[in-house]
């Protein structure tokens, strides 16, 4: 039996009717067509499916969609900067060449956002720990860390 699910995604309220065994990743991608959230390992290891639930980064492949009933969710589509520009983290990832194939990028950026929102002045080590649940298989961690630190210092915008 399909169940009613209300989600507040990127500020918009959505009501969908879903099978109970759907994960939050499934519903975001298949029902809401928000395909910026990626499904990688499907077992909570890789972090490609990271979204924010009530401001906290979680792996949406390990969240039953119905458990997110009524909660506020931010996906990569929900990030934006001032006046329609990119979010500083997004711009910093571009400026610092922190994107290779791009599959891990939405998860990386959302983990970084949740972390920076809580820790305004992190050390490099703290950034590394904050991103330890996001895997990049293009082996690009150095530039990703640089981008997060730069975004935090307001150097994200194009020169």
């Amino acid at each position: 039996m399909k169940r009613e699910l209300k989600l507040i995604v990127n500020g918009d309220t959505h009501v969908v009717y879903i099978d109970p065994w759907k994960t939050l990743t499934d519903v975001l991608r298949d029902d809401l067509q928000l395909t910026g959230t990626k499904l990688g390992c499907n077992s909570g290891e890789c972090g490609a499916c990271t979204v924010l639930i009530n401001g906290k980064a979680v792996k949406s492949c390990l969240v039953l969609a119905l458990q997110a009933q009524g909660k506020e969710i931010i996906t990569i589509e929900g990030l934006e900067g001032e006046q329609g520009k990119l979010h500083p983290l997004q711009q910093a990832f571009i400026d610092h060449f922190a994107v290779q194939c791009g599959f891990c990028t939405p998860g990386m950026i959302l983990s970084a956002k949740a972390f920076l929102d809580k820790n305004p002045n992190p050390t490099e080590e703290e950034v590394r720990v904050a991103l330890s649940g996001n895997l990049c298989r293009c082996t690009g961690y150095v530039k990703i860390i640089e981008a997060v630190l730069a975004a935090n210092e307001g150097k994200g915008a194009s020169q």
Binding site: G44, G47, K56, V58, L62
Partner: peptide
């Protein structure tokens, strides 16, 4: 335990 996203949930 786990990773930050796991510990959050």
């Amino acid at each position: 335990i786990g990773s930050p996203q796991i510990r959050n949930w």
